[in-house]
Amino acid sequence: MEIYIVHKKLTVGPHKGKRCFTLSRGPRRNIASGNLLEGIENATTLSFADGEMIFRSLVEVVTEKVSQGHSVDLGPLGTIKPTIKATGVENRKDCNAKTITNRGVQFIARTELNERLKNMSLRVVNSKVRNKQ
């Protein structure tokens, strides 16, 4: 993966306003489902149309299961589950659905996938950035 040295101004924390250097991912593309399906077509015996059909049904099933409160195991990819955020209240009788402030989705990647990503090769592209200070 190509990474870039960036010179940025900190916007939060005790050093707010200070200019520092850090590394960041460069300009990135959004890979759409079509690209994935082409790769899957080459790797398996499934046709593009079959892949598209499975893809659509898979998204449908995952959405349905997650919105029913299930955590969904996606095999080598990881697990998707719903989450909630709520505010604590002093009295038991005041604790109801209204105290739930946000609902979201959490994805937990499989350990092996995270491990492989941790060991990926990285390359600093713009190593000639000068200190402007």
Partner: peptide
């Protein structure tokens, strides 16, 4: 299919790209 999908996603993640799955 799901296993192949995971491999494809991983391939693009190693390249530093975002992988968008419509609806998910």
């Amino acid at each position: 299919f799901i296993t192949a999908l995971a491999h494809e996603i991983e391939k693009y993640l190693h390249m530093g790209e975002n992988v968008e799955i419509e609806g998910l």
